[in-house]
């Protein structure tokens, strides 16, 4: 360093603060820590800590109201294999997810493609489709509960014009699966219509014209040009839709709540079981184990999906 003689610096408080601030700004890392610190701390407290604690508690027989909570190692996980309702919930959730994801994404893709042909009016439709997405789950589910009501519901009323007898949409064990899928599709399709719309618009018109001249029919253009080019977006959509549907709770809770005059079939889903075991039967440790299983399951689903949609080198 050269011998530069600096003038003496004032040592009043404001001056010192100003110098400190300037030093911190120069020292980039320090500034970043100060800026992100509070947010990260909040994130840790609200997200990381509860998740870590849940995983920890899954190794204990943790009962909400009891004083002693002994360590049981993998005892909770062992019980998972015997727990009939848990298996039922797992099967139901997988079935539900698969149906919902396929139905939602196919419908969204079809709508997005149709909307391409009325490009000018497309934003209006996208807006209309998006309204269910921003509607809160619970009020929407309550409305659907009424639509599905066997005696006074709009759906059975509409079907009666076609001579279809009264159906117990929420009472029949098979029909309720489709009823729930319908609600989920209704809620989420708008989101994916917008996403697929973006993906479709990103494909240059020229490519489709070239395909036209190459002799491709509309179906071929879709399967060999459009869909392959939309791969990353489709991957994202499948992943997102799967996660959302795997975690389904609110509509199931509302639609299957056996309120007074509107009994419903108790369709078990994973998160519903976690809720029951944790907050109704008070087996928090066991519920924690189920949470961990849910986490692992979703993560493996994601890995499988990433591998399936990966760019083939």
């Amino acid at each position: 360093m050269s011998d530069v003689i600096l003038p003496p610096q004032p040592s009043s408080l404001p001056a010192r603060l100003a110098r400190g601030w300037a030093r911190m700004k120069r020292n980039h890392i320090g500034f970043v820590i100060c800026a992100l610190g509070p947010v990260l701390a909040l994130f840790v407290v609200i997200r990381i800590y509860p998740i870590a604690e849940t995983i920890r508690l899954s190794f204990y027989d943790y009962h909400i109201t009891r004083r002693s909570n002994p360590f049981v190692g993998l005892g909770n996980y062992a019980y998972l294999f015997e727990d009939g309702p848990f298996h039922e919930a797992l099967v139901n959730t997988i079935l539900f997810s698969m149906l919902a994801v396929v139905a939602t994404l196919l419908l969204a893709l079809a709508c997005a493609i149709l909307l391409r042909s009325i490009e000018k009016a497309a934003p209006i439709y996208e807006l209309l489709f998006y309204i269910p997405v921003v509607t809160p789950w619970v009020p929407a589910s309550v409305i659907w509960k009424w639509i599905f009501d066997p005696t006074f519901g709009a759906l059975n009323y509409a079907l009666s014009f076609f001579g279809v007898a009264r159906l117990g949409w929420l009472q029949d064990p098979t029909l309720i699966l489709f009823a729930l899928v319908a609600v989920s599709v209704w809620k989420m399709v708008g989101y994916f219509v917008v996403i697929f719309g973006v993906g479709l618009r990103a494909i240059p018109e020229e490519l489709l014209e070239a395909a036209d001249l190459d002799g491709a029919t509309a179906w071929r253009k879709l399967t060999r040009i459009v869909l392959p080019l939309m791969r990353p977006i489709i991957l994202f959509s499948v992943v997102t839709c799967t996660i959302i549907n795997f975690n389904v709770f609110a509509p199931v809770y509302v639609l299957t709540a056996s309120s007074q005059g509107a009994p419903a079939y108790d369709f078990k889903v994973l998160v519903g079981e976690i809720y029951s075991n944790g907050f109704v039967y008070y087996h928090m440790g066991y519920a924690g184990a189920q949470c961990v299983v849910l986490l692992l399951f979703v993560m493996s689903l994601l890995i499988v999906q990433f591998l399936a949609f990966r760019e083939k080198k």
Binding site: P204, E206, E209, A211, L213, D214, P228, L229, R231
Partner: peptide
């Protein structure tokens, strides 16, 4: 329809299918 006119076009921006190899691009038609 364009695909029945038996014509071929070379575009300004090439319009090559980015996800296919050169061979597949040429073979597509």
């Amino acid at each position: 329809l364009p695909r029945e006119r038996d014509i071929a076009m070379v575009f300004q921006n090439y319009a090559l299918y980015p996800h296919m190899s050169v061979y597949d691009n040429m073979a597509f038609g």
